[in-house]
Design a protein around this nucleic acid. Structure first.
Lengths: 210, 210
DNA sequence: CCCACTGGATAGTAAGAGTATCCAGAACGG
DNA sequence: CCGTTCTGGATACTCTTACTATCCAGTGGG
């Protein structure tokens, strides 16, 4: 497959594909001559992954690039790779680390993780992200109670463990497993979000009359 | 409160506040002279809402502006207002409406809504958003089954109905109820997403050894 | 009565995600 | 074997979004 065919098959313009190549999102094609390279099924698949992360996950190209670098690093254990993906998914924080409010919220988060018995890297930016959300909720006068947080956490853990992780083909090739994890993280996350809004709309219709 | 004090209290620079005023995100202060206006607690609260939607919800300013216009339109019923907010939350689609795959996925979504007995406006862009996600999942070789979708939907409905909607102060002033709804939609949605990633990391550590 | 501050208008900036142009070197079609 | 079409690679341009910066004339407190 030459670049024009890859473009036709994926629906992505050639200059954009070249851009992804430059940014390292897409691996180089197999060079068959100085001015010729051959692309394959893998490139098509990768393009679909990129577009899903971009358009559904709204991830910046730079984050996708980091995720893909981790996916392609054969040395990296799969669990650590997922950590990298999660890291890239976290909204970049620009917090004052000396913020007292944030520190207090972060303590609440630590307590939650501990009381759930979860194993989470204390360095994970996800934890600060959650703390940040708690701070905002407080500011807006609708604080989240520990009780409801624990309820949500419990429920999500059940869901992740029983319905998401078990689908990951850990016995297949590494790249497949790792892609499934990333796609699962992003697309399932989004699907969840959308379903929540639909449930909310329906419940609002029931309560308020639509 | 003059603008400089509003800026100091909120931590947002004056030019940015002026920008929000221009864009209609923030209501004008009470004009006390040609070159003087007075801002109040409401403006501070509104600024916090804006920043939460921007930084946590990652909503574009234009969408926030639409939401706020709906919030301030006293004529609009609360349920319809929530619809507007949901509309603004949906990722803007740029689909070919003649896409056969999309239509099929949309049928699956319609079926899901019906089998759940939910009341959702068939025009809601949220439905197309979900269909889009299903298409991507198919493309990436990890299709979602009707069964798991129904499981998720059921679970989310329980959660929304029993733990989110009941917190909304429908008996208070309209603006408060409506803000709670919007904040709930966005911040709870995000909190959920973050908790899901934490659950996933913990489960991954358990399964793959961290 | 004067000078820092204000609201309003206009213009400029920085980051992110492409798009467009150029170029010289194949490749295939005739 | 030769001209047209494509290609990879490099560079430069564009468009959008969310701010920032400047300017201006008009207060209003000390």
């Amino acid at each position: 497959m030459r670049i024009s065919q890859l473009s036709a098959a994926s629906g992505i313009p050639i200059p954009t594909i070249k851009y992804y190549l430059r940014e390292g999102l897409l691996p180089q094609g197999e060079q068959t001559a100085v001015t010729r390279a051959e692309y394959g099924e893998r490139h098509l698949r990768r393009l679909r992954l990129i577009r899903a992360l971009l358009e559904v996950g709204r991830l910046p190209v730079a984050s996708i690039s980091k995720i893909i670098a981790a996916v392609e690093d054969e040395e990296m254990p799969v669990h650590q790779m997922l950590g990298t993906a999660h890291y890239a998914l976290s909204s970049p924080m620009e917090p004052r680390p000396d913020d007292e409010e944030h520190r207090a919220a972060r303590e609440r988060v630590n307590g939650l993780i501990e009381s759930m018995g979860w194993t989470v890297n204390p360095e994970a930016p996800t934890l600060d992200e959650l703390a940040q959300i708690l701070v905002r909720m407080d500011h807006l006068g609708m604080p989240a109670t520990e009780q409801s947080l624990r309820y949500y956490a419990e429920l999500l853990m059940r869901l992740v463990a029983e319905h998401e992780m078990e689908k990951i083909p850990f016995d297949g090739p590494r790249e497949t497993a790792v892609e499934s994890l990333v796609v699962g993280t992003v697309l399932y996350g989004k699907a969840f979000d959308v379903l929540r809004r639909l449930a909310q709309e329906s419940e609002s219709a029931r309560l308020l009359g639509g």
